[in-house]
Design a protein around this nucleic acid. Structure first.
Length: 436
RNA sequence: GCGGCCAUAGCUCAGUUGGUUAGAGCACUUGAUUGUGAUUCAAGGGGUCGCGGGUUCGAGUCCCGUUGGCCGCCCCA
């Protein structure tokens, strides 16, 4: 047993772990690029105040934070949103709109571990700045769905619950609640699915029991699961804000339908998301079986860039965490085993053949082929076994008989056929065989 | 921050009411095999039984503490 181990909640990535992580990152990156998003990155360490400004002082308990040697209060980033707001805010006037950015990065939170949650994890973050209309939500929802579908997941495996904090606000306002009470009610709505009636306990303690008629309306609203139900509930309301908002909903759902994504989207006003900075559409992706934590979450946060010192800039974004996502892929058998593929395995007869092989090994590698060979002289049988286990497609056989004729043998490991190739033509022969 | 369960080899796990030198399978290394991928067989390396203390003639086993893990609560950006 080693004397040192990794810190609680942190993960080591041995080669086969890392190959799985790389697989996920590669498809995320490909997908985000296909949707026209540009990749960025930023420091892991940020000023503590960046997070306090966004989320309040309580956030510090859940951060890896400390005072650096220059006396600065700093924290490891627990999320990307404040950072990307800082980046975009600083150059907002110079950036072409819409600003579509993504990143794949590691985050740190000082929390107790649970299934699908550790103290360090990776996320794909994607955000659009500068577009106030639902066209931005459309892009992000489409990207979110495709970021999961790229791995072979389907609408049988996951879905995205779509809700709207604006409409909640407008509705509760129209029912006569002030802002503080609205936030209290939204807190209860957030918990309702889990605790039922008890979800309103906190509200009752703070503001007194909610009027029964009002409470019934709240519960009715959080049970809305379709645009039709939404329109029906709001039919008697003539408020301009509500009318305009319903138009946004029709536009967004219509466009999602045109993209063929309807089967992934579930209107669900039971989702409000905990944090208060969301200002419009909010959404969360879940596995259909409901066994795992949320796979992804996001929404609109039009006030945040300005709140962090930048210009007024509308924004929408989402994040997919790697831990729950990896659990889902494993559950569905969609996580590939590590495939360490080798193009060419060089089988070497002895010391003299080894020296003769080095030139070809070097040229093949310089040409970009993945080439392996045994570092020590071992029996032929072992070498072929090693070639097979390494997943080599070709074996290049350097034996004394072949070298005497000025050739090497090229063996196709799949169909076991062999042919002789002049030493000068090895690279082109390998290239032809592998591409053919 | 709170609660439940757990900790023996790289992995999955045995280990008798407390009793000699702590075991198996898989994995790894080597050999049988001096020119062809399988199977098989043989051998080998690897553990101060998470750590610390206590009870005892004697502790992997019982007790206390601690650290770590899994799960749940809080929280979930």
């Amino acid at each position: 047993m080693a004397t040192f181990q990794s810190l609680p909640g942190f993960r080591d990535f041995y080669p086969d772990d890392l190959s799985r992580r790389n697989y996920i990152f590669r498809l995320w990156r490909q997908t985000a690029s296909a949707f026209g998003f540009s990749e960025y990155d930023a420091p892991v360490l940020e000023p503590l105040d960046l997070y306090k400004a966004k989320s309040g002082d309580e956030i510090e308990a859940q951060l890896f934070s400390f005072t650096d040697k220059g006396g600065r209060e700093v924290a490891l980033r627990p999320e990307m949103t404040p950072t990307v707001c800082r980046l975009v805010g600083a150059k907002a006037n110079a950036l072409k709109r819409p600003i579509k950015w993504f990143s794949i990065a590691e985050f740190y939170r000082y929390e107790r571990m649970q299934k699908g949650r550790g103290r360090c994890f990776n996320q794909l973050n994607a955000d659009i700045f500068g577009e106030p209309g639902p066209e931005a939500e459309l892009e992000l929802l489409a990207l979110l769905v495709q970021s999961l579908c790229s791995f072979g997941l389907t609408s049988e495996d996951f879905y995205v619950r779509l809700s709207d904090r604006n409409l909640w606000f407008f509705y509760l306002e129209a029912l006569g609640l002030d802002e503080a009470r609205i936030r209290g009610v939204l807190g209860a709505v957030d918990r309702y699915e889990k605790y039922g009636e008890d979800a309103f306990k906190g509200y009752t303690e703070q503001y007194g029991a909610l009027d029964p008629e009002l409470k019934a309306k709240v519960i009715g609203f959080l049970q809305i699961k379709s645009l039709a139900a939404l329109e029906e509930t709001l039919a008697t309301m003539t408020d301009d804000k509500i009318t305009a908002r319903l138009a946004d909903w029709r536009s967004l759902l219509g466009s999602l339908d045109a993209m063929g994504l309807s089967q992934f989207i579930q209107v669900d006003f039971g989702v409000v998301r905990g944090l208060a900075y969301y200002t419009g559409f909010v959404f969360e992706a879940f596995d259909r079986k409901g066994e795992l934590r949320a796979i992804a979450g996001g929404g609109r946060y039009d006030d945040l860039v300005a709140k962090l010192g930048g210009p007024d800039l509308p924004a929408v974004g989402f994040a997919i965490g790697d831990m729950t996502f990896a659990l889902l892929l494993e559950q569905r058998g969609l996580m590939p085993a590590m495939v360490q593929t080798v193009d060419v395995y060089c089988v070497i007869g002895g010391p003299a053949e080894r020296t003769a092989a080095f030139a070809a090994i070097q040229s093949l590698r310089a040409s970009g082929f993945r080439v392996e060979y045994p570092l020590k002289d071992v029996a032929f049988g072992k070498q072929f076994k090693a070639a097979s286990e390494a997943g080599a497609r070709l074996a290049l056989i350097y034996g004394s008989d072949e070298l005497a004729k000025g050739v090497v043998k090229l063996r196709d490991m799949n169909d076991r056929s062999e042919r002789e190739v002049p030493i000068a033509e090895i690279v082109s022969a390998v290239r032809d065989t592998l591409s053919g």
